[in-house]
C-alpha cells in the first residue's frame, strides 16, 4: 500500500467511527448469542471490529453497516469453530422434529382475549431461555429480525443462505420459541399439542457429537 493512501485512511477512520462504532452493542449481542460465553463474545467482537476496520473500504456505502459487521462476525465465528474442528449441527435437517414440536400449534391461541396475552409479561430471562433452546440457526434468524431489525435480504446475506431458508427459519423459530415460553409461563392450553411435541429442548444441543456437518 502506497504512502499516498494515508489521507484516505484518516477519512476512512472517521467514517468508521460514524457508521460502524454505533453497532458495537448489537455486535456484542449477536456474538453472545452465537458463543454463549461472555469472554468469547468479547474476544469475537474485538476481532470483528479490527477486521472491519481493515476491510472498511470493501464496505458498500449506503448498505446496512450493522448487517455487514454481523456477516464478518458470523464468518469469524464459523472459522473458529472449523479451526477447533467442533461440530456444527445441520439445523435444517431437523425439520421433521421441529414440525412435530409445532403440531397442534395455532398462532391465535395466545391472543384470543386480552388477558390471554400473557406472553407479554415474560421477563428478559424467560425470553432468553426460550431463545436459547432454539437450534442456533433459527435463534440467529429470529434475533436478527426481531431484535436487530434486519430485513430478510440482510439476514440472508449475514447467514449466507437463500431468502426462502431465512423465512422458514423465522417461521419455525418464532413459533417454537413462543410455544416454549407459553409453557414456561403456564399459559399453553391443555391438549395444545404439548404431548405431540414432547420435550424437544434437549434435542437442540448446540453441537451434537457426530451430528451432520454442513460442509462448512
Amino acid at each position: 500500500m502506497g504512502t499516498w493512501s494515508f489521507g484516505r485512511r484518516a477519512r476512512q477512520r472517521n467514517r468508521f467511527e460514524i457508521e460502524a462504532m454505533p453497532h458495537l452493542d448489537a455486535a456484542y449481542r449477536f456474538a453472545l448469542s452465537m458463543t454463549r460465553d461472555a469472554v468469547e463474545a468479547d474476544d469475537l467482537v474485538q476481532e470483528t471490529f479490527l477486521k472491519a476496520l481493515r476491510s472498511f473500504d470493501t464496505y458498500q456505502e449506503g448498505t446496512n453497516c450493522k448487517a455487514w459487521l454481523f456477516r464478518i462476525l458470523r464468518n469469524t465465528w464459523i472459522n473458529r469453530l472449523r479451526g477447533g474442528s467442533r461440530e456444527v449441527m445441520a439445523d435444517d435437517a431437523m425439520e421433521s422434529i421441529q414440525d412435530a414440536a409445532l403440531a397442534g400449534w395455532d398462532d391465535r391461541s395466545f391472543y384470543r382475549s386480552p388477558d390471554e396475552a400473557s406472553l407479554l409479561r415474560a421477563t428478559r430471562d424467560e425470553i432468553q431461555a426460550a431463545l436459547a433452546a432454539l437450534p442456533p440457526d433459527f435463534r440467529q434468524a429470529v434475533e436478527l429480525s426481531d431484535v436487530e431489525g434486519l430485513s430478510y435480504k440482510e439476514i440472508a446475506d449475514v447467514m449466507g443462505t437463500p431468502i426462502g431458508t431465512v423465512m422458514s427459519r423465522l417461521y419455525r423459530g418464532r413459533r417454537l420459541m413462543r410455544r416454549r415460553l407459553s409453557r414456561t409461563l403456564g399459559i399453553e392450553e391443555p391438549g395444545g399439542g404439548v404431548e405431540a411435541g414432547g420435550e424437544v429442548v434437549p434435542l437442540f444441543g448446540e453441537r451434537i457429537a457426530g451430528g451432520a456437518n454442513h460442509g462448512l
Binding site: R13, F16, E17, M21, L24, D25, A27, Y28, R29, L32, A38, D42, V45, Q46, F49, L50, L53, D107, F110, Y111, A117, L119, L120, A122, T123, R124, I127, Q128, E143, D146, V147, R178
Partner: peptide, 30 residues
C-alpha cells in the same frame, strides 16, 4: 397481540449491552 409481544421481546433484549471495557478497547484501537 403479536406486535405487542415483539415489542416486549425487542425491548427486553435490547437492554443487553457490551461491557464498558469492550467499548474502551475497541475505541482505543481506533
Amino acid at each position: 397481540g403479536e406486535a405487542r409481544f415483539r415489542a416486549v421481546l425487542r425491548q427486553q433484549l435490547l437492554s443487553v449491552r457490551a461491557p464498558g471495557s469492550l467499548h474502551r478497547q475497541v475505541r482505543e484501537h481506533l
